[in-house]
Write a protein that binds this DNA or RNA. Sequence first.
DNA 1: TCTGGGGTCCTAGGACCC
DNA 2: TCTGGGGTCCTAGGACCC
Length: 434
Amino acid sequence: MYALVDGNNFYVSCERVFRPSLEGRPVVVLSNNDGCAIARSNEAKALGIKMGVPWFKIRHLEEQASLVALSANFTLYADMSDRMMSLAAGLGPEQEIYSIDESFIGLHGVRGDLVDRARKIRARIYQWVGIPCGIGIGQTKTLAKLANHIAKTAERKPGSYPTDLAQVCNLAALPASDLDVVLSATEVGEVWGVGPRIGKQLRDAGICTVLDLVHMPPHVARDRWGVVMERTVRELQGEACIGLQGSPEPKQQIACTRSFGRPVTELRHLEEAVSEFASRAAEKLRRQRHLAGQILVFARTSPFREGPRFSRSIVVPLRRPTSVTSDLAGAALDGLRAIYRPGFQMAKAGVMLLDLVSADHVQGELALEEEPAGLRDRDRLMAAMDMVNERFGKRTLLLASSDIEQGQGTWGMKQVRRTPRYTTSWAEMPLARA
DNA sequence: TCTGGGGTCCTAGGACCC
DNA sequence: TCTGGGGTCCTAGGACCC
């Protein structure tokens, strides 16, 4: 048995904790560069604002409907997430943190009334952290996900489901006839693993509700859509195929990519950006104690704008696996210079670290040549740099190539509406009294 | 004027092996 | 006209997730 605990409209809820005046108002949180809406309050959803819609298309609602838009404040959300997760963990013996606002809880061995227990955890999270949650319970992770969707929808849209399923929904406790009613009232596209593409194919085949999908024989799902879909169907039928993943696996690739605040035309500005991206990616790499064997770098123009198009990438092999910032940035810059062509308005660039291996299990080398001097010194230098940046803030120590323009902001993000980092910065802590 | 970022898994097809 | 069988590894691309 599994539960899924999921913060409602998570980013918006985080903002509301510190600005209660946003309660009851339509609010959206915008992606980097204030590009599109990535979180919406219920009121914003009621205005018809879709997930991922570009800000310029809904901007008129600022005046017409008192819509409030905020720049994403990921530092704040990550800290609020930690607080929420530690309380959610109290629901059962095992926890898998699935995303910034969701965690699965393994309920094995938990006795007593699960719904009652879940309601108490939910109340505690709301009281101690200020985030409203939905909790779904089911025999499999896919069913817990579905139950969570029903719990949140029952609360947000009265009449869509029985009111006692609001906020906390245990599908496993429902009598079979009631379960069928609920499943037939839920669109197939709401199922975890059914995206836009497969959703359409299912509907074209006459499978429109979750109940329809539950009745599909697994081999049919496999023949037409593959093993992933078969697993989804089996999970819906109550057969657990996806286990809980306690401690997170190390990443197999690490990316750092950004859209620019304005078009970038000059190579040296691109170089500064790519050097910075490589530095950030290298930090993540060292945090998980891995080395990269290759680095990919790309740059492209906007796919949405008229004008000459450019989109190229290149994979640069490293001489030996490394996590040293200057090695990675150097290789990325070599790659960038190889693919760069003048005369384009670049809108985005990035790097990806590939072929990651654990730093503790590095393949030895035949001593065909002398080991370069100072190989270990550079690792110690990186450790020192990470410590300094951890203690005194990002970019306290950085590569010169990441700061060619010395903060002139030739490519940086637009973030006009960012709120303070209330919980992680002394200087931005809210004051009760001035 | 203005359109995010970071991941995972699976499959098909090509290269190559004996 | 006619061209085996069985296998591995790698890569690119598609679909999905939040």
